[in-house]
Write a protein that binds this DNA or RNA. Sequence first.
RNA 1: UCCACAGUAGCUCAAUGGUAGAGCAUCCGGCUGUUAACCGGAGGGCUGUAGGUUCGAGUCCUACCUGUGGAGCCA
Length: 464
Amino acid sequence: MHSATTIKELYRNTDEFTDKQITITGWIRSNRPSKNFGFIELNDGSFFKNLQIVYDSDLENFVEVSKLNISSALVIEGQFVLTPNAKQPFEIKATKIIIEGESSPEYPLQKKRHSFEFLRTIAHLRPRTNTFSAVFRVRSVAAYALHKFFNENNFVYVHTPIITGSDCEGAGEMFRVTTLDYDNIPRDENNKVDFTKDFFGKETFLTVSGQLNVEGFAQSLRDVYTFGPTFRSENSHTSRHASEFWMIEPEMAFANLEDNMRVGENMFKFLISYVLENCPEEMEFFDKFIEKGLIKKLENIVNSDFGCITYTEAIDILKEADVKFEFPVYWGADLQSEHERYITEKVYKKPVFVINYPKEIKAFYMRLNDDNKTVAAMDLLVPGIGEIIGGSERENRLEVLERRIEEMDLDIEDYEWYLDLRRYGSTRHAGYGLGFERALMYLTGISNIRDVIPFPRTPNSAEF
RNA sequence: UCCACAGUAGCUCAAUGGUAGAGCAUCCGGCUGUUAACCGGAGGGCUGUAGGUUCGAGUCCUACCUGUGGAGCCA
């Protein structure tokens, strides 16, 4: 990809390069000049850590180099030498420094800690900081880890549509997709907007979930998953909601709720192990500066079993809890954030599945249990974040599903294709959705979802 | 949408109702091994916006704007 040596290679295969003449490319993170020599901290994007460059007045452009601002781009030739008695393990004694691109004194990032809030206002520059370069490398590695997990377990990756004609996916407010001219909206005889004149000839939206689509593929390819962007237009103002986020949704034929939980737990543990193993420098940084004890926390997760309780048991625990909750606890009530937090943070202190919720508070497609009161749903709650996985065994009995659609006051005509899946050799099947950013928050200790997405979209904010 | 908190120099923050300040950054100078280098000097402000109270408002009051945290919704 490049002819230059990368800093990652220097750190990983140090011996190979000792005392060799090499070429390095990268950006200045810090420049400390004095009269006849100076030091540059260089980062080349290949690795979390920097490389120290020593330069002196033998360079023909010494004066220019000593005045370079942070973030200037350089090509450096020099000798790679070990420095066992210094703070850094090795450095480059520069013999030639070519200035590829100058920066300027107005460069807004300083050699000090900035608030995440300020960095969000310069989202195009924040990947140049330690924290965000680490976050986004981990994001990439985590995405790969998830693909690897599913691939190794013979799941087929399905690309479900981003634009959907179904306004009843049932998982929240949707963004409209249209090419209608707002200044001249076509109307029908009842003065309603005439969507037959719109691009697709009907109302269309951005997807809130690929689940219903991917269920169709599970009945052919058996174990499948989606991994793509998801859009919700709720006016949410919290540290764990974004209008555009990524979601992983596995769906498995011939699987029940038990299988579903097992896959969810294995996937989550694999993800953690893979990131710990492949991003040690980044994780060490997070452990030191973002969340003390992070690595220990994650290692504990990998080495222990997730908790599992039924909704009914959870209600009993909450009723007996010696804590004043703002919202009342009774069977049939949805679990509030404070309740979920109590269970996962105070009682279990680790991830815990809550299963078998009352059917009234869950989606129509979840399989009705034999008690006729609860559905085979599962939420995985984790400390600090709350719900990170939501899933269920799906209702695969045609009559029951039809009845549930009616009970929930949904229009059965919208679901004919979905009902077809139950008409032609339907199997028991189950799946879930993992919020990718929420998983990243848990992995990195970053407490705001806006800081694990490259260019976050939230209500009133779609900059860059 | 509701509740709470906050907006002062490029950044992070001070300032009892009484002359708006520091550290970092920037610029200039010094420095032969620095490590968020160090030392000396300089420039930098309509205190979020609009009203009001007061002899006097960064500070008190009202409204609005923006941001952050929390709730709801969920991943």
